[in-house]
Every structure is written in C-alpha cells, then in structure tokens.
Design a protein around this nucleic acid. Sequence first.
DNA 1: GAGTTGGGAAACCGATCGGTATACAGGGTG
DNA 2: CACCCTGTATACCGATCGGTTTCCCAACTC
Lengths: 190, 190
Amino acid sequence: MATTAKASPRDRLLDAAAQLFYRDGVSIGVEALCRSAGVSKRSMYQLFESNDEMLAASLERRRAWYEAQLTPPDSASDTPRERILYVFRRLEQASAAPDYRGCPYLAVLVELKDTEHPASAVARDVKDHLESGFRTQAERGGARDPRLLARQLMLVFDGAGARAGARIETLADGLATGTVTALMDAAGMK
Amino acid sequence: MATTAKASPRDRLLDAAAQLFYRDGVSIGVEALCRSAGVSKRSMYQLFESNDEMLAASLERRRAWYEAQLTPPDSASDTPRERILYVFRRLEQASAAPDYRGCPYLAVLVELKDTEHPASAVARDVKDHLESGFRTQAERGGARDPRLLARQLMLVFDGAGARAGARIETLADGLATGTVTALMDAAGMK
DNA sequence: GAGTTGGGAAACCGATCGGTATACAGGGTG
DNA sequence: CACCCTGTATACCGATCGGTTTCCCAACTC
C-alpha cells in the first residue's frame, strides 16, 4: 500500500545525505551516512563514484524543491516587486524553524573551500539562477540598473540566511523584506 | 638580532592555527596544526585544554587585529557616514586578495554548527561588537532607526564577505559601499 | 657538578576516515 | 532446478582523527 517503505537505495541515500550534510556539515562521513540511509557502503560506491559526487548529487536533487520553495505560485497579477518580496518572505518564514541552518548551498561553498569541488559547482549554479531571477524581475520592474539591484539582493539574501542560520540574527520582524524594499525603492523600481 | 626566531610555542601555535583554520576550515586536525607550528602535541595539550579551546583562543587572538583593520584612524573630522563606509571599503579591498576566504568569524559560525562551541561565542562577540559600532554611528548620523540600520548593514557585510570569499561575487566595483550608501540614505542618515 | 624544568620526538590508544573486497541472502527468469 | 542480479553485512585496507604517555635532551638555577 504505502509507497513509503519502497524507496530505492539511491533515493534513501540522497535523502539521508541532504539531511545529514545540512544538519551536521559536509564532514559527516560515509560510514554514518550509509548507516542512516540503511544502505551498505558497497551499494553506495556502485551508485556513486565517491563521497564528493554523492554530496553534489544530493544538492542537485534538492535543487528543484529548493527553487520551487522560493518561487511564487504564478498568478499573472503580481508585480515584479511582489515576486521579489515573496522570496524574502519565504526566507524569513523558513528561518523561524528551530532547525534552520541557513542556505545549504551557501553553507557548502563556505565549508568546502575548494571551488573545484563538484558540489561547489552545483551550489554556484543555484546561486546564479536565483540572481538571474532577481535580475529578470528588476528589469520588468524598471530598475535603473537591474544587474546591480540583483547583486544587492543576493548580498541581503545570503547575509540574512547565514546570520539567521548561525543564530546571530532573527528575521522575524521583517528585516530582510524591509531591507530589500529600501533597495528596490532606491533603484527606482516601481 | 631578529626577534622573529624567538616566538613562544604558544604564539607559534596560535598563529599557525589562525592561518590554517582560515585557509582549510575548522577540521584541520591537531596533527597537522602542531606540525605546521613546529610544536609537539604534548606542548599543545598543556597549553590548551583541547582542540576546541585552541580554536577559540586563536580567534580571540586575531580579534584585536581584525577590528583595528576595520576601524578608521580617528581623525575627528570624518562623519559617521564616512566611518561606516570605511568598514565596507576595507572589506572590498580585503576581498580582492587572492587568498581571501570571507570573514573568518562568520565562517567559523557556519562550519561549527554548534552554537555552544567556545569558538562560536568568540565569533558572536566579534559580530555583536561590529554591529554595535554601526549602531553608534547610525545614531550619531541621525538615522531614523539606528538599530535597524545597523542590522541591515550587518546583512550586507556578512553577505558580501561570504559571497566574495566563496568567489561567487566580486566587490571590486564598489558593490558593498554602494549598497550601504543606498541604505544609509533610505534611513535618513545625514 | 647536581638538580630541575620545558619542550620536542615519537609511540601509542581506540575510533573513524574514504574506499575495497569477500561472502551471502532474496527475487526474478530460463 | 540452476542462474544471475541486487543489495546487505562484514571484514579489511592504510591513513588520520583527538588525545595521552613515555623518553630524552638542552637550558637554566643553585
């Protein structure tokens, strides 16, 4: 009946990986990972080339979900400004969860200081995609310099995520949305 | 003659720690650390209680230098706005160095996801101190909500540092200073 | 010269790292 | 039935982890 018990080893591995890497960092270890996923190391090493590739795959797998999380359900009615604010409202909501640890993609980039790591490439991709989404809305909204505004929004997004994740800031009072509102105003966005 | 060869084991250890933790992350290991410092593990463990305390001590040691780095040489002439911009100009300059890896204190908070870790407390302290410096200047500059502006500046500071350190952003064109200028303007700061 | 001390070299502890190899149990297909 | 294919369990590899301990030498004090 329930499909829950029938997840493939691959899926169980990727799900456990995403969870453990996020909660405990990238240095979790193959041993703990496989134990948590209920998969033997042998199976893992014939599904993935290495631990590094596993990490990259688990990030890639979460990507669609992560981006959907930040994308407003498209009602043609909402303005570019609204669509941008939606992203930051979601960030503020997510950061309220007790197990929030910041953006997993930024965290991976910080922890793996190696820019050549396969997982770093995935993380950069996700970041670039978000930024280009901001730029698109900035253009639609008539910002004076859409690319500049998009980069500013990314500073706020990553700064807010990191600080909330590290528990040195709380976004509960609308700090992020307030800040980006000021920046969009300053950029002449309607 | 040269005092360079006479650094105490403690100092050699702390300096090597600061360097290696910054370059390679907090998972460096006691072995590599002592080798790099030219100090035996025995000496290290009678100077510090544990590896964790060592990390905290090395962060604490760098603290004065780090904060001085961001503090303008006080000429009574410069405005609060100038003093804030000075911080972000220094950030932009520092981020241009090829071995720049972002703010070491934020990195530690991200890597050690444990908020109870002794090093996390040091890092939080440094961040709080910077924020309160911003607030002081915001008050002096007549910002409508000094505390809010200070928090916004911290978002930009940490976002810019993290993104530049991860090599997904370049601050060379004045992105950070431009952004905080817009925020200070919006806050009604003179 | 005798005694004390600081600190480096290195062995050692059990645990874990990433990764490999061997052995075996279950399910389909002939 | 035999056959193969997945996947688990497990032992194993050399290396490293944080941390402790032993040994010994060089510099200092008396």
